[in-house]
Amino acid sequence: MDLTAIVFYLFSIVTVGAAAIMVFSKNIVHSAFALMFSLAGIAVLYVLLYADFIAATQLLVYVGGILILILFGLMLTEQAVTQKFKAVTVNMLPASLLAAVTTVLLVYAYATTSWQMVMPEERSETVYDLGILLMSDYILPFIIAGVLLLIAIVGAILMSTRLTAIKNEEQ
């Protein structure tokens, strides 16, 4: 067993285990922190797949951005005194049945399909090639993604400030 296999199994277990803790934990704040470990483990899996830029983006955007946003939302919306971050679970049986069936079917399909594989290219870095692609073949999606992000941020700010404006008027 070489180092790649050991790292792969270690971080697969971290990723899937942290995701399981996230789903089954009774405390929502614990769930959010478990999600952090899961996302960081996924970043390590990206490094194993020779995707260094995507791994860095994953750490910056998911662990550094989206997770903080989720924690903010959690702290701002939870009625900490009354509910104490308790989570309610419903439909436990149908949900676990559906999840188990999905896993079994997907694993069966993945294991029995003969994928058309090519020899993995040994790349030292992907940033240069990704930059060239982004500025040539993918220039239109790149611009659209920029406009989408602008609209999303303006919309989020508008919704949040309107909220405080209504509250101030009521007072």
Binding site: S12, T15, V16, A19, A20, M22, V23, I28, S31, A32, L35, S38, L39, I42, L45, Y62, I66, I70, G73, L74, T77, A87, V88, T89, V90, N91, M92, P94, A95, S96, L98, A99, A100, T102, T103, L106, V107, Y110, A111
Partner: peptide, 30 residues
Amino acid sequence: LIVSALLLSLGLMAVLSRRNVIMVLMGVEL
């Protein structure tokens, strides 16, 4: 692919069985 299938079913489980909006959102991220 198997690791991603496990993560997908865990996310599905979070979306279907939890009733807190933010938990559902975390399931979608997964």
